[in-house]
Design a protein around this nucleic acid. Structure first.
Lengths: 121, 121
DNA sequence: CTCCTTATCAGTAATAATTCCTATTACTAT
DNA sequence: ATAGTAATAGGAATTATTACTGATAAGGAG
C-alpha cells in the first residue's frame, strides 16, 4: 500500500481525534489540508485503511458508516437523543459457544443504544 | 397503531421465517400476497414495527438494514464469505460499567464477523 | 537523479438504499 | 352518510456509496 499524501492525512485526522466521523465529515476535515481532495478518494482510502486494520467502522441505526481511528477493541454507545457515539470498555466475552460450533470469529462489534448522561438531565 | 392488511402481512412474513431479510426481500415476499403493495409502505411499516418492538434490525457492514421477526435478544454472526446471517445465544453481559456512568442502555446489538461452518470446508 | 511502472488521484456519472410527497382510499366516530 | 384522521400506492427526490476515466505522482531500479 502506497503512502500517499491523501491517505496519510485521512489517517492522521482519524488518529488525532478520539471521536467517530462519517465519510463526509472526514472529507470536510481533510479538505482543510488538501483542498481539492475528492470524496471518492476519501471513500477508497477509508475502505483500504479498514481492510488493513488501521481504522475500524461503526455501524449504527443511522444510515451512514462511522470511522474510528482508535482500534483497540471497545464498545460503542449511541445516544438516541443526540446521536453522539461514546466509547466504553469491552466487557469480557469469549464467544466460545460460537467457535465451539465451528464458526471462526474474526472480529465483533457491540453497539449499545440508549440515553446518554447529558441527555438524561 | 392500525393493523392494516399490509402491516399484518409484513409481520406475518417475518415471524414465519427464522431468517433475516432486507426491505426489498420483504417487499418481494409480501407482493406474493398483496401484489400492489408499494416499497414505501414496506419501509414505513418496517419502521413502525421496529418502533413498536415487534421486530428488530440488524446492522451489518453491508449497506442495507436487515429485519428480524425473532425478538428474543440474541447475537448475530455474519459470514464474510457467503454473507449469511446466523443466530447465536447471547453470552451473559450486564453493561454495568456503562450504566454506572449514568448512561441508560435500552438495547444492545452484537454482531460477530468471520467465516461460517459451511464456508470453512 | 531520472525513468518507468502502476497505484492512486480528481472529477464525474452511476447505483443502491431509503425517505419524502401527493393524491387517493380506508377506517372511526359522530 | 359525513367529517376527520390515518394509511396507502406510486413515484420522485435524497443520501450514501461505488464505479469509471484520463491524468498524476509514489516508490523502486538503474
Amino acid at each position: 500500500m502506497r503512502l500517499t499524501h491523501q491517505r496519510e492525512q485521512i489517517l492522521a485526522f482519524l488518529r488525532s481525534k478520539r471521536a467517530h466521523f462519517n465519510a463526509v465529515e472526514i472529507y470536510d476535515a481533510v479538505r482543510e489540508v488538501i483542498p481539492n481532495i475528492s470524496l471518492g478518494t476519501v471513500y477508497r482510502n477509508l475502505g483500504k485503511l479498514v481492510e488493513d486494520g488501521e481504522i475500524i467502522t461503526v455501524e449504527t441505526e443511522n444510515r451512514s458508516i462511522y470511522y474510528d481511528g482508535y482500534i483497540i477493541p471497545h464498545t460503542h454507545f449511541v445516544c438516541k437523543k443526540c446521536n453522539e457515539i461514546y466509547d466504553f470498555e469491552d466487557e469480557p466475552h469469549s464467544f466460545k459457544s460460537v467457535s465451539d460450533k465451528g464458526f471462526d470469529v474474526d472480529k465483533h462489534r457491540t453497539v449499545l443504544y440508549g440515553t446518554c448522561k447529558n441527555c438524561k438531565k
